[in-house]
Amino acid sequence: MAGFGCCDSNPAAIAGRNVDVTNYYNAGGTIEIGNYDGDAGWDFLVGGSNNSAWVAGVGGRLTGPSCTDGETVTALGISNGFTQPGPVGCWTHQAYNQTYFGALGFTKSYFDADPAFAASNPGTGAYSSLLSNGNTITGGGNVPEPAAWTMMIMGFGLIGATMRRRVARVTFG
């Protein structure tokens, strides 16, 4: 987390964990690119080099707005639990070239970037404000938390034990 309440791409934050992160990624773990400025410290994960040449806006080498509310949640983003927020004054400040990062495996776009990013970089293709290599679920809407699973299992066990202890009662008339 950056000091102003957002995020940063500081690779020192995972110093010594490159192998762990790479193994997670190679095993199919979901990695998202958001608030990433193409810092060379992430080359071990995103591949290539000179990645900042494909990042528009703050921290990237391509131009773009420093603050915008013009991005929209994609259909894939909606199906993964994201919702379109109302104007907040400054929602995003970077965008990622989908062709370049897609070739590195980040093919799922959850937010289309503000069209101002593409307009600032004509002929370079489409941009996303959040790319991923896999699906993600936000908000926990339909997935019970571990504590809920524990309570459900205990409840079913109690019901089973109660049913097992019942003795059939026969009445004679």
Rank of each mutant, 00 (worst) to 15 (best):
N97M: 04
P11M: 10
A95S: 08
A75W: 10
F101Y: 09
M151Q: 12
G173N: 13
W54Q: 10
Y24E: 07
T92N: 11
C6F: 15
N135K: 10
G77T: 02
G77K: 00
N26C: 02
G34T: 05
I33P: 00
N51G: 03
V55T: 12
F172E: 03
S109H: 01
N10E: 13
G60V: 11
V73A: 07
A126Q: 01
V73C: 08
A103I: 04
M163W: 09
N35H: 00
P122S: 07
I14E: 02
F101W: 06
E32K: 06
P115W: 06
A56D: 09
N51E: 07
D112A: 15
W149M: 13
T107I: 08
F44P: 12
A27W: 05
A161F: 05
F82D: 05
G155I: 02
G38H: 03
C7M: 14
S52C: 12
D43C: 08
P85K: 08
F82N: 11
D69C: 04
G140D: 02
C6A: 09
G64W: 01
S128C: 06
G102C: 12
G102H: 08
W91G: 10
D39H: 10
T83G: 15
I153V: 05
Q94V: 11
A2P: 07
Y25E: 10
C90Y: 12
G155H: 06
D39F: 14
Q98F: 00
G38S: 01
F106S: 09
A15W: 04
S52Q: 15
M154P: 00
L158C: 09
T162M: 15
G140F: 11
N121T: 09
M152C: 14
H93V: 05
S128W: 05
T68Y: 00
G125N: 03
G41K: 06
T138L: 14
T92Q: 05
L45W: 00
G86E: 08
S132Q: 03
G123N: 11
